[in-house]
Amino acid sequence: MAQFRMHNPTHRFDVECDMTDHDAATLTTQREFSDTVRGIAVRDGTMYCATGGWTDGGHLYALDRDGTLRWRFDSVAGLAHENGGWIDSSPAVSDETVYVASKDTHVYALERETCAKRWQYQTRGRIASSPAVADGTVYVGSDDAHVYALDATDGTQQWSVRTGNMVKSSPAIVDNTVYVVSDDDMLYALDSETGSERWSLAVGGGQSSPTVVDGTVYVCGYDPDDARSLESMSGALYAVDAVCGDLQWKFQAADIIVTSPSVVGDTVFVSDLSGFVYAVSAKTGTQQWRLSTGDTIVAPPLVRSGTVYIGSKGHGVYAVSADDGGLLWRLETDDAVATVAPGEGRLYVGSYGCRLSAIMATPSDE
């Protein structure tokens, strides 16, 4: 038995529960790779799995639901490239094309069924930003400090905008506006057609990608008002008006937040590096509950049908009630979890130990 402490504005209580409730869900290894599973996308029964590391460079795999290989794409430089050539982001999948970016400085467009290369575009820096596709355009950030807009059909550059530092955040595109965070600690709102800046706001940190819901941009980072050193300063969740860039509220977390927020209904779910998971009111920024896992968390919370799923570096996947933060179950994994993704009645878990696994949840979790 393990003890968790949760907090909300009205009362505190401890919850004791079975940490390995295997009656609730089962974990099955789908496939093993040579490097870390960095990103997963699922569409029409096919898993697109990006891997990368110093062992074998960068690859994108197309797999059937049972893990059977359909095809494999190798980044152009692989280990021969000075940056390792690995893929450190998630692919974007459209009707006929898979878009993926690599630390070999390229963005690739691949035919979904055959993996034939439609086009490639080279930036001047490594890419850890996941591409986003909207209205025939691919948007992506690069370590060369630029945000790029590329024609989705042929890869022609439509525009690029320079920020003050590397762009590892993945863009969000809503209402003809591109929202993206740079390592210069600024959140930018750019015109999606021209790249012209609509507004910018200091938010601290550049690894979290923004989430835009109902006219509000939610983004995480560290708290620049915290006077402590970067190693000990707290994290922050910001709510920003999507049109004018005004700060609506700021929520302070116990530690730096590197994951992206998940917004469902009137609640924002985030997690920090100290292992806390938070539910925060989307309207006011008031904490609704907090759960301490005791594990480092780098994968964004995934919310489905009233359950929050969290993958941790402590070799576990947690299922938590979205209503009150109560722990429903925890599954042990063989390795630290790098990413968790939804997929047609399953959860897919990518690990630093080079495994892709599937969680088969009970009907109540689906």
Rank of each mutant, 00 (worst) to 15 (best):
R5F: 15
M6W: 12
P9K: 15
H11L: 14
D14M: 10
C17M: 14
D21W: 11
D23A: 14
A24K: 15
T26L: 03
L27N: 04
F33A: 00
S34W: 08
S34D: 13
I40A: 05
A41N: 09
V42I: 10
Y48R: 07
T51N: 00
G52Y: 00
H59L: 02
D66G: 14
G67H: 09
G67E: 07
R72G: 03
V76H: 15
A77V: 05
L79C: 06
A80G: 12
H81T: 00
H81P: 01
G84F: 06
G85M: 05
V93H: 10
S94Q: 05
D95G: 05
E96I: 04
A101P: 09
K103G: 08
H106D: 07
Y108T: 15
L110F: 00
E111D: 14
E113L: 13
A116L: 06
R118V: 08
Q120A: 11
Y121C: 01
Q122F: 00
Q122H: 00
I127T: 06
A128V: 13
S129C: 10
P131R: 01
A132G: 09
A134E: 14
V138F: 03
H146C: 10
V147H: 00
A152P: 06
T153W: 08
D154A: 03
T156E: 14
T156Y: 02
S160D: 12
T163N: 07
G164M: 00
G164R: 00
G164F: 00
K168F: 04
S170H: 11
S170W: 01
P171N: 11
N176G: 07
Y179T: 00
Y179W: 05
Y179D: 04
V180D: 02
V180K: 04
D185H: 14
D185V: 10
D185K: 07
L187C: 01
L190I: 08
D191V: 04
A202K: 15
V203T: 15
G206I: 11
G206Y: 09
Q207T: 09
Q207A: 10
S209D: 13
P210W: 01
V212N: 06
D214L: 05
T216L: 01
T216V: 12
V219N: 10
V219E: 10
G221C: 13
P224D: 02
S229N: 15
E231C: 04
S234M: 05
S234A: 08
S234N: 12
V240P: 06
A242Q: 13
Q248I: 06
W249Q: 05
K250E: 05
A253F: 11
V258G: 02
S260N: 12
S262V: 05
V263Y: 03
G265S: 06
G265K: 09
V268R: 12
K283F: 07
T284F: 09
T284P: 06
T286L: 13
T293K: 10
G294R: 12
G294I: 13
D295C: 03
T296P: 05
T296M: 14
T296R: 14
L302I: 12
R304I: 15
G306F: 11
I310F: 04
K313M: 14
G314E: 00
D323V: 14
D324Y: 12
E332P: 04
T333S: 05
A336T: 12
A338G: 13
P342D: 03
L347C: 08
G350L: 14
C354V: 01
I359R: 07
D365G: 07
